[in-house]
Simulated scan of single mutants.
Amino acid sequence: MALMRATAHAAHGPYTQDPAIFVITVEGEKIVDLLEMVDTVMIETQCFGKKLSAA
């Protein structure tokens, strides 16, 4: 498992993913599977301009 922090300038404001979590499966010397867990609400808001709202 790996923890990552990403910061960028997105179309609708600054974008920070802290933390993003990667679960990596390795066989021999090769990565055979990668599972990435991120804050999808942050991606929707900062990259695509969508707002989370209570319905």
Rank of each mutant, 00 (worst) to 15 (best):
Met1Asn: 15
Met1Lys: 12
Met1Leu: 07
Met1Ile: 13
Met1Trp: 11
Met1Thr: 15
Met1Ala: 15
Met1Gln: 11
Ala2Asp: 10
Ala2Arg: 02
Ala2Thr: 14
Ala2Tyr: 12
Ala2Gln: 11
Ala2Ile: 15
Leu3Ser: 08
Arg5Ser: 00
Arg5Lys: 13
Ala6Tyr: 09
Ala6Thr: 14
Ala6Phe: 14
Thr7Ala: 05
Thr7Phe: 05
Ala8Cys: 00
Ala8Pro: 01
Ala8Ser: 10
Ala8Phe: 04
His9Ala: 08
His9Met: 13
His9Glu: 10
His9Leu: 07
His9Gly: 10
His9Cys: 10
Ala10Ile: 00
Ala10Pro: 01
Ala10Trp: 05
Ala11Val: 03
Ala11Thr: 06
Ala11Gly: 07
Ala11Ser: 12
Ala11Arg: 13
Ala11Gln: 13
His12Cys: 04
His12Ser: 00
Gly13Thr: 07
Gly13Glu: 08
Gly13Val: 02
Pro14Val: 14
Pro14Phe: 06
Tyr15Pro: 00
Tyr15Trp: 02
Tyr15Met: 07
Tyr15Cys: 00
Tyr15Thr: 01
Thr16Ala: 11
Thr16Val: 15
Thr16Pro: 08
Gln17His: 01
Gln17Cys: 06
Asp18Glu: 08
Asp18Tyr: 02
Asp18Leu: 02
Pro19Trp: 01
Pro19Cys: 01
Pro19Asn: 02
Pro19Arg: 00
Ala20Pro: 02
Ile21Cys: 05
Ile21His: 07
Ile21Lys: 08
Ile21Thr: 14
Phe22Ala: 01
Phe22Leu: 07
Val23His: 00
Val23Asn: 12
Val23Thr: 05
Ile24Met: 12
Thr25Cys: 03
Thr25Glu: 14
Val26Trp: 06
Glu27Asp: 09
Glu27Tyr: 06
Glu27Gln: 00
Glu27Ile: 06
Gly28Glu: 00
Gly28Val: 03
Glu29Thr: 13
Lys30His: 15
Lys30Val: 12
Ile31Asn: 05
Ile31Arg: 07
Ile31Ala: 04
Ile31Thr: 03
Val32Phe: 06
Asp33Met: 12
Asp33His: 14
Leu34Gly: 02
Leu34Ile: 07
Leu35Pro: 01
Leu35Met: 14
Glu36Asn: 09
Met37Arg: 15
Met37Gly: 14
Met37Val: 15
Met37Pro: 14
Met37Cys: 15
Met37Ala: 15
Val38Cys: 09
Val38His: 12
Val38Tyr: 04
Asp39Trp: 05
Asp39Val: 06
Asp39Met: 00
Thr40Asp: 08
Thr40Trp: 08
Thr40Pro: 04
Met42Tyr: 03
Met42Ile: 14
Ile43His: 08
Ile43Met: 02
Ile43Trp: 08
Ile43Arg: 10
Ile43Ser: 10
Glu44Leu: 11
Thr45His: 09
Thr45Val: 09
Gln46Gly: 06
Gln46Phe: 08
Cys47Tyr: 00
Cys47Thr: 05
Cys47Pro: 00
Phe48Thr: 05
Gly49Asn: 05
Gly49Glu: 00
Lys51Pro: 13
Lys51Asp: 13
Lys51Ala: 10
Leu52Phe: 14
Leu52Tyr: 15
Ser53His: 13
Ala54Arg: 14
Ala55Asn: 09
Ala55Gln: 12
